[in-house]
Amino acid sequence: MNDRHLLSIADLGREGIEDVMRTADSFREVAGRSIPRVPALRGKTVATLFFEASTRTRLSFETAAKRLSADVMSFAASSSSLEKGESLRDTVETIDAMGVDAMVVRHRSSGVPAQVTAWTSACVINAGDGQHEHPTQALLDCYTIREALAQRRGTEDSQNGADFAGLRIGIVGDVKHSRVARSNVLAFSALGAEVVLVAPRTLMPPSLDGWPVKATADLDSVIPDLDVVYLLRIQAERAGQVLLPNLDEYHERYGLTRERSNRLAAGALVMHPGPMIRGVEIAPEVADLPSSLVTRQVRNGVFIRSAVLFHLLGAADSGEAIDA
């Protein structure tokens, strides 16, 4: 990794993404041991600062840190002084003063992890900021695709990022408000995939200048050409606003219905960052098809987050620690 922090997939580039995925392979192996734990980050403290509730992502990071023997400190906004009017800066500096090596930051506002870097000497990991990015989600998505492609070839051996060359990935849904989409566009295209965004214009970013993507409002026109369908979460509150008439119409135009899934190419993969709303983004029966990787994404999240923590905190002084 080129930096002390992971704020954006752009911090990594192709090489960084491939490094993290390779390290995640080691942690997948560790997970299979009777004691799935290595001493790589013994004595290090990882603080999770979740200003926005997300039990799944927080548990994933905390599990990842514990498997590396790090101490974990957990901060949730609801239990904090933020509600009493403390500024973001004071909160961060207070936690910094307790002596932490990494801060894993989740916030409903875009840019907070970047702001936090100015107020702490710890490594900062973006665990999802507003509508900006969610880099570890994108890494685990890349890892999950890589794994599925390797299995499709009937091998455990991955060709790493090379698998993505020429892969056609459709990201479907509320791209405009999605941090997952922003990170995945960067990650998928860095690895050489072709990305097409599929959304009504009201849910598309106002400008796609500089985005290495194609865009369309018509899911049916691209469905047969996709190797991966990546469905984004639609927030129910968007419907009924001017952005979207209602969820039924959304499902009609952009949901992965049984009919649409039958038009997918053989072996095409279906992904979703969760939590899924069955019947809106995806038909219930489609979500349970073998092509769906949704639960595998969750499992891989732990390996990827261990790998990210290891790269930022451990790689320098304990390169051999995984084998200990």
Partner: peptide, 15 residues
Amino acid sequence: HEGAWSSRLGIAGQP
């Protein structure tokens, strides 16, 4: 400002 940067940064823009 609503434009290329607001889209990239995930910040709602004013056109």
